[in-house]
């Protein structure tokens, strides 16, 4: 990652995007050739309701400086109310993370519809700036001993 940020720090971000709205919104930002910073790697799930604290912790532990969760607007979720579950859980997740010493603002929840390519680009730009201002998190160095129980990816046989 190049280091051309104002303070020489380029945040590394993970974005969990629901497949129906936000992933398509990100695609639309692309087809519209909007430009935004390259700091976030998107990860697709069916619904934002799939993402819980373990995924956020895992991302932070692997070295992410911030995590975005993006789903459909309230009422638009492809699974009726999956995003209400996301929204309901989010404050608790934030509290948990703050108890672990995380600054407010390192995780963010946004609603981005499939038609909102511009909003997606804006959110990523803003979020990148926000994390740039907060500085590096550095949990990956801190937790090499696995003391924070973010489950590691184990290759186990899964019943079909």
């Amino acid at each position: 990652m190049s280091t051309n940020g104002s303070n020489g720090f380029e945040p590394r971000l993970i974005g969990f995007l629901c497949r129906w709205c936000s992933y398509n919104g990100a695609d639309l930002a692309g087809t519209s050739r909007l430009k935004y910073p390259p700091n976030m790697v998107p990860i697709k799930t069916n619904c934002s309701g799939r993402i819980d604290a373990t995924h956020i912790l895992k991302a932070l532990k692997e070295g992410a400086d911030g995590v975005l969760i993006a789903g459909c607007h309230p009422g638009d979720c492809h699974y009726i109310n999956g995003n209400y579950r996301t929204a309901g859980r989010f404050p608790l997740t934030q509290k948990l993370l703050e108890q672990l010493g995380l600054e407010h603002g390192r995780v963010r929840l946004e609603w981005v519809s499939a038609a909102e390519g511009d909003k997606f680009a804006r959110v990523v730009t803003e979020f990148t700036e926000q994390i740039r201002a907060l500085g590096p998190l550095g949990w990956s160095a801190q937790f090499v001993d696995e003391s924070v129980a973010a489950p590691a990816a184990e290759k186990e046989a899964v019943p079909a």
């Binding site: 993970i14 990860i43 995924h55 991302a59 692997e62 992410a64 990816a153 899964v158 079909a160």
Partner: peptide, 18 residues
């Protein structure tokens, strides 16, 4: 667990991205 979006699949994606 959800086929196609197993926890270990998502975790592995995170590891790869980071």
């Amino acid at each position: 667990q959800q086929h196609g979006y197993l926890d270990n699949q998502i975790f592995a994606e995170i590891e790869g991205a980071m």
